[in-house]
């Protein structure tokens, strides 16, 4: 059997890593378009650019932090630049997909402050206990958010 261990991930250079995380970000916007939440023509109108120029913005090699923010805002979204430690200092596994961070944030109840995060984290630990004891999923609804600590996020489309 072929082994992939101990081989550097293709994102071991800064340019490749940057391209990958830009592609992940663009995929999030593209998914929003494909799901019908926003049309490309609307995006072009909000950006004040022709559809052709907007298509150029979907090139991961061209994107800057400013253009990412412009694109996300035009798609009624926001952007976070997230630093994290995934226990992979040699980057043998590449970056974590930005959509995973987003789905995790939504699953926990979309906290906007550290206070909300603390409030939301506590009952989820409690649900974990219920889950282990009852071997079943339990859902709670708090602050208008439908949350589940057990159910996985819907598949990414």
């Amino acid at each position: 059997m072929e082994k992939l261990k101990n081989v550097a991930h293709w994102t071991d250079t800064t340019i490749n890593f940057t391209h990958r995380i830009a592609a992940d970000f663009l995929a999030q916007v593209e998914n929003k378009i494909e799901q019908g939440d926003i049309k490309r023509s609307e995006l072009a109108e909000r950006l004040g650019r022709s559809p052709g120029r907007v298509s150029q913005m979907f090139n991961a090699g061209n994107i800057t932090l400013q253009s990412a923010v412009r694109l996300a805002r035009a798609a009624c979204m926001k952007v976070a630049l997230v630093a994290y430690d995934d226990g992979d200092p040699e980057n043998q596994n590449g970056p974590i997909n930005s959509e995973i961070f987003y789905q995790c944030w939504r699953q926990i109840g979309s906290p906007e402050t550290f206070f909300e995060l603390a409030e939301l984290s506590e009952p989820i630990e409690h649900i974990g206990w219920l889950h282990e004891a009852g071997n079943r999923g339990v859902e709670i609804d708090s602050k208008g958010f439908q949350k589940s600590a057990i159910n996985r996020a819907p598949p990414i489309n």
Partner: peptide, 9 residues
């Protein structure tokens, strides 16, 4: 990673 789109890609 488990993504099933975007279909453009």
């Amino acid at each position: 990673d488990g993504a099933n789109g975007p279909s453009r890609r």
